[in-house]
Computed example of a mutant assay.
Amino acid sequence: MDRLQWVIVVHGGAKTIAPDKAVAHRSGCARAVEAGAEILRRGGSALDAARRAVCVLEDDPTFNAGRGSVRNAAGEIEMDAAIMDGETLAIGAVAAVRHVANPIEAAAALLDTPPILLVGKGAERFARDAGLCPAGPEIVSVAAGDPGHDTVGCVALDRAGHVAAATSTGGLEGTLPGRVGDSPLPGCGFYADDAIGGVSLSGDGEAIGRTLLGARVMRAMEREPADEAVTVIFAPMERLAAEAGVIAIDATGQIGIAHNSDHFALACASSAFPEVVSAIHQNELREEKSNV
């Protein structure tokens, strides 16, 4: 099968979306994927496209990341983010950061350093030294009572055949301070390898971490296309009575999407179709996916 020139998919979290929030989730994902797609159309890298798309999601308070982050039991915001380069297998990740406006930017700045994961004050110091903007009063919590299970993310494939994956989350409402979920853990909430493809996940972080869910999808993509490989998430999530959603792109550019949550905010674009497509459930994309 011929490889598509470029592809990008974003998600805004596996969760239940109230009817009055559906438009905001669709349009927010569409803006994010368009920002990344513009980079890919110009011949830019998957890494830059994924980083930019997640920045847009972090800046949108609709989503549980960046400005929309939730508060832990101490009333504080702690955010996680990660990005991976499928060409070099470089990883940058930060966890439990409070004073970084765009955690994905801090994660991306780590790609050229020996550490792959920095946490807390160490991560914030690194971000400050890298010249990144500190979080200001615009960082707000979403509505009280939102459990914050969701994570935002992106996978992208560029014209050079390179894959990137990125994630960002604002945590769980009311959780223990210092809690870190799956989002910044490679093989759990994300992974990318040019030879296979890339994945980004969302859902119950502890369940995703316990089952190495991202790694399971990557292993499946070694044998089958993305749209089949993503179905491996269902059995382990059923075993743990947990929710998850995954977006994936394989090395040929095929897209895979699966979730067992009520909704999964999504948007995608590729060189095969000119218009951005967005949805809040995978079934809405079936017709468009068949044309990719």
Rank of each mutant, 00 (worst) to 15 (best):
I8M: 06
G12D: 05
G12F: 11
G13S: 11
D20S: 15
V23I: 14
H25Q: 07
V33A: 10
I39A: 03
R42D: 03
G44E: 08
S45R: 04
D48F: 04
V56H: 09
E58K: 01
E58I: 02
F63L: 00
F63A: 04
G68M: 02
N72P: 10
G75P: 10
I77K: 02
E78W: 00
A81W: 13
E87G: 07
E87Y: 14
E87S: 07
I91D: 03
V97D: 06
V97S: 04
E105V: 02
A106K: 14
A108R: 06
T113P: 02
T113A: 10
L118A: 01
V119A: 15
E124G: 11
A127K: 14
D129E: 15
G136H: 10
D146K: 06
H149T: 08
D150V: 01
V155G: 13
L157G: 11
L157A: 11
H162C: 15
A166M: 06
G170N: 04
G171T: 05
G174S: 13
G174E: 02
P184M: 08
P186H: 06
G189L: 10
F190G: 04
D194T: 03
A195R: 14
G197H: 14
V199L: 11
V199N: 13
S200T: 12
S200L: 14
E206M: 13
A207W: 15
A207S: 15
R210Y: 05
G214M: 14
A229T: 07
T231M: 11
V232E: 10
F234H: 05
A244S: 10
A244L: 14
A248R: 10
D250P: 05
A251C: 02
G253E: 10
N260W: 06
A265M: 09
L266V: 01
L266D: 07
A267S: 07
A269E: 07
S270C: 13
S270I: 04
P274A: 14
V277Y: 12
N283W: 14
E287M: 15
